[in-house]
Nucleic acid binder design. Structure first.
Lengths: 233, 233
DNA sequence: AGGCGATGGATTGCATACGAAATGGGCCTC
DNA sequence: GAGGCCCATTTCGTATGCAATCCATCGCCT
């Protein structure tokens, strides 16, 4: 009865989820080639389904589709990164406005639990990035605003990409304490303050993680570019 | 040298553009079936390309992909519509903030020209909806913020869908005078005022066009829902 | 010896083919 | 005469095959 493979929605969606997860886990890093053949072979599906998944991923901005030249994991520029966080800020503001003073008890519990998990995860760098992102998508989902949820999901995913590219290795990209503080402010219904917190929170990421080490970041970027050109990966 | 068919990017993109345009022009109205075979036959391409285009369109929220049941032009609910305008407001606010006091001369000319065209187009209802939308996408493009541009484009497109579904037939959905006033406020660099204007402008649409005829709209919505459930379409 | 054009392998672009699910109509039964 | 079941048709889901493109390598000509 039950279909054998990974959950619902047809195998095309399964491929999409697999690739997306691989990218967000940094198993596939920005710039990686994504040949239809090898992926299909590895996942046990035909190129057709891989192609469909790649189209979806490109719509989400996670992969770049270069005509006749194959797909690669997206490699956002630093400026695209800054613009992305600007956009994200505008939408997260709406999330906060929508949720302020309106969180129900189970929602609060869920968020609090999640923050606890974040606090407990200090070792694994990649995991803490993922958890930090999930906190924001969790908030978004509670707005029950479909388009808002979709866009926040996309932006959070791409933010991960950007942080893996330009983020400082050992800075706390998303300070967990700021998540807790935000939650408490939302519960108290202090909308204005919550907006400030969220703005500060996201601005911290861009300034703390992205901009301050501008020269270092540029070096890394340039080196990676040349490495790719030389076929080193 | 030059490829024969409709501009660049491969035929899949051509199919995508064709369908998108057809939907926005209301040649294909919400709920219309979109069978892969007939579309492919009509456009002279195979189902493969049509499928790819439909996947893209579903990513943009313009078509709904029902597994094993075919694709239809999206039919947003009234609540989705309201949420969508909320989201759009948050992003248009960012557009206005970014552009206020920073418009260059050629940009101003371009916008002014466009508004003139809008003013001259009072007869054709569908065309005036399209032009009003284009004004907003034009503004967005001037921010040069890639993600912002993409999302505004999507939201404007879906807004058209919603207006064709729930809009009052003869109300001016997007008052042109408000566009002109907004432009002048942006030129003057009065950011706060510009934000107010944009908010009022979009709120006008939701309240003037969507909400006031709530009973009429609800009847239609409810009836359609039941019709669908009964297989009438 | 160095640059330039040809050639072969790999990979994408697109179409077609085949199996599976849903939909609609006809026939049989009650 | 009405209702339900079965089959035919239509449309989707997926795989596969062929032509076109690109990239790298090698050979050739200057």
């Amino acid at each position: 009865m039950t279909k054998k493979a990974g959950s619902a929605g047809g195998r095309a969606h399964a491929v999409h989820r697999a690739l997306k997860r691989a990218i967000l886990d940094q198993a596939l890093t920005p710039g990686s080639k994504l040949p239809e053949d090898s992926i299909g072979e590895r996942l046990g599906v035909s190129r057709t389904l891989v192609r469909e998944a790649l189209v979806r991923l490109s719509s989400e901005g996670l992969v770049e589709l270069r005509p006749n030249k194959g797909a690669v994991v997206a490699r956002p520029t630093l400026e695209e990164g800054r613009n992305l966080f600007l956009t994200r800020m505008a939408l997260e503001r709406l999330v906060v406005e929508t949720l302020s003073g309106k969180l129900a008890e189970p929602q609060i519990a869920r968020l609090s639990d999640h923050i606890a998990t974040e606090e407990a995860t200090t070792k694994d760098h990649a995991a803490s990035i993922r958890l930090a992102g999930e906190f924001h998508t969790l908030l978004a989902q509670m707005t029950e605003n479909e388009s808002l949820i979709r866009y926040i999901n996309e932006l959070v995913a791409r933010s991960s990409l950007i942080l893996t590219l330009y983020g400082r290795p050992h800075s706390s990209e998303c300070a967990v304490s700021e998540h807790r503080e935000l939650l408490e402010t939302l519960m108290a219904g202090k909308t204005g303050r919550a907006i400030e917190l969220m703005a500060h929170h996201l601005e911290s990421i861009t300034t703390r993680a992205l901009l301050p080490s501008e020269d270092r970041v540029n070096i890394q970027d340039v080196l990676l570019t040349y490495a790719m050109a030389e076929g080193l990966g």
